[in-house]
Design a protein around this nucleic acid. Structure first.
Lengths: 353, 353
DNA sequence: TTGAAAGCGCTAACAC
DNA sequence: GTGTTAGCGCTTTCAA
């Protein structure tokens, strides 16, 4: 690591020799025959304290020299970088895609830049990324946290806006935006029983330590309890076909005897088994129901369309952005956990019983 | 704009009063009873020019004070920010998602940060974003350009690595990474004719000025020419149902008489009409074939699975990252257009005739 | 209407 | 081994 950095420095200097030094405010001042102060004023739009002539001269020089202000120097002086950081588990997860898109739009509209990084769900990496963002003086951070850096985040939250998305832990001074995973999941499972499915097999990834997964599972278990049904929870690992085979075998066993529904804890899990699920040969929705948490973009393309729990992903991103811009505008925003409700969307994949 | 900025500054100062000033290298030096130089050395791992005792003392003080180096100050001095910028049309487009993911991973592994912004395909906005990235002294830029800033990019490419992705324009000193849109599209259309479809209706968005779209269209037209078939090109606009209705009416008219295939210029276009396409009631693939450029993630989930042109999106992102890290390492990388070939993937949606 | 000069936090000659 | 000091490019008093 250190080695790389060093090499980097040296190489950089070597490059500098060939590449001409960037134009600075000094160069502009010199060429325009004014002081840097005046140029600085020009750059910040304080045209009223400047003669028409001076202004035009500076404008001309800047254009001619192709001068570009150095935001680093400005930020160092002003203590503002106008950038915020976002850390997600994986940029290509549908949740993250939707969130980042809305977050980026909201921030962009307010003039902020966005730095994005992926933690891959690893707490150490997450910690490094946060530190690195802090070192770069981002003005706020939004993250889908592993939950293992909560103490550190609590410290951080006293210095800058910190917004937890998706995985909503309670951290003093921080904001959390999540959905009502447990309620929505209970509702989904309940409706499946209500539709006449005798068995609802729940497929989930390992939930330990991940609140969203735990809550969705609990919601399912709640519904089983209330409906007096035996829960069937199958744990799968994405990328591990064997785990899915085992789960499907269980589904098959249930469906052979009675009407069965499969309910997956998120869209990626369903995506990974949808094909083999259909290959079991049961008629959907009459013999086999299919439902999932999340609303995959292909929910409407398959036949019959999927029954699913729609998470207001975009709204979460927008809200996160709004909280941050408000705070950076100096407004007071009370911290706490914000719940943006999800809703069950009934599709043909779970028919009337 | 100026107003906002000004207000921001003032508010910031107000905030500063309540929030304690950040610890600096000075504070650390003072508390440790050494000079800033020594602390700086410590921070950069030059432990050999430092006594064991000093090192431990500094480490202790840093931990105690919760000191975090200021990357801005470092960057200002060193002229390196270790961040690169990426500008895409829309972060949620499948191409961009795949590209950004691979790009981010490659850069992250080399210790670089990533700033992401969306141009929405607008040339002016794109230009602003580039300038803003330059102001922030990103060390390289990758972008999916509109093609209207090529002169500016040519200038920029002399100062830093510039990589065009997807839309591969030829710009001196810049790199471009694209796929063989025309060849792959010709191949796709050709195969459709070969499979016995009498008509291949091509659905595309307005191609003017966008090389990828033009090339795909040309490939289709090439195939028609060689196969001596009459081309049927229908222009659609995403988000405009009427344009899709017109296109589908045309498809219907063809399919009523003879075997017809629909071939869409990208996955998003197909996504927007897939459902209504199926609703026409033709049997797929016998009466109606369906094919698309791009490989949507749901290609395998629908029944029958889609025939499509698979673009090596991840590879493009990785390659872009590699070019940039190599250049920043000081290596020479010849500029030019890099073509990463796409391939036709046959699915059940276009059966044997 | 303008400018001189003191920093912002850090690095790296160049001393000692 | 360690410290002094001159910047990096910019903003902002304070003075003229």
């Amino acid at each position: 690591m250190r080695t790389r950095r060093w090499r980097g420095h040296r190489l950089f200097r070597e490059r500098r020799q060939s590449v001409p030094k960037r134009t600075t405010i000094q160069d502009v001042a010199r060429a325009a025959g004014v002081s840097v102060t005046t140029v600085s004023r020009y750059l910040n739009g304080r045209y009223d304290s400047m003669s028409e002539k001076t202004r035009e001269k500076i404008a001309a020089v800047i254009a001619e020299l192709g001068y570009r202000p150095n935001a680093l120097a400005k930020g160092l002086k002003a203590q503002r970088t106008e950038t915020v950081g976002a850390i997600v588990v994986n940029m290509s997860y549908p949740f993250c895609v939707g969130f980042l898109r809305a977050f980026s739009r909201t921030l962009g509209a307010a003039g902020y830049h966005l730095m994005v990084a992926e933690s891959e769900g690893d707490a150490k990496r997450e910690r490094q990324l946060i530190e690195s963002f802090v070192a770069n003086r981002v003005e706020a951070i939004a993250l889908q946290t592993s939950g293992d850096n909560n103490d550190y985040l609590a410290d951080l939250a006293r210095e800058m806006p910190v917004v937890l998305v998706d995985r909503a832990f309670a951290i003093p001074n921080a904001y959390a935006i999540g959905t009502n995973n447990r309620d929505a999941s209970r509702e989904m499972a309940w409706q499946l029983f209500d539709l006449g499915y005798d068995w609802v097999v729940y497929l989930t990834e390992d939930a330990r330590g991940i609140p969203t997964r735990m809550h969705r599972l609990e919601g399912y278990l709640d519904a089983c309890r209330v409906a007096l049904r035996e829960p069937v929870v199958m744990r799968v690992r994405r990328g591990d076909p064997a785990s899915f085979r085992a789960a499907l075998a269980r589904v098959d066993a249930c469906a052979r005897k009675e009407r069965t529904a499969v309910y997956t804890a998120n869209g990626l899990v369903l995506m990974e088994c949808y094909r083999s699920l259909r290959a079991l040969g049961y008629q959907v929705p009459d013999e086999l129901g299919i439902a999932t948490f999340d609303e995959p973009d292909w929910a409407d393309l398959v036949d019959p369309p999927l029954t699913c729990v729609r998470q207001p992903v975009e709204q979460m991103g927008e809200t996160a952005g709004q909280i941050i811009t408000a705070r950076l505008r100096g407004e007071h925003v009370p911290s706490g956990i914000l719940v943006v409700p999800s809703s069950v969307v009934m599709g043909g994949s779970t028919g009337r019983g």
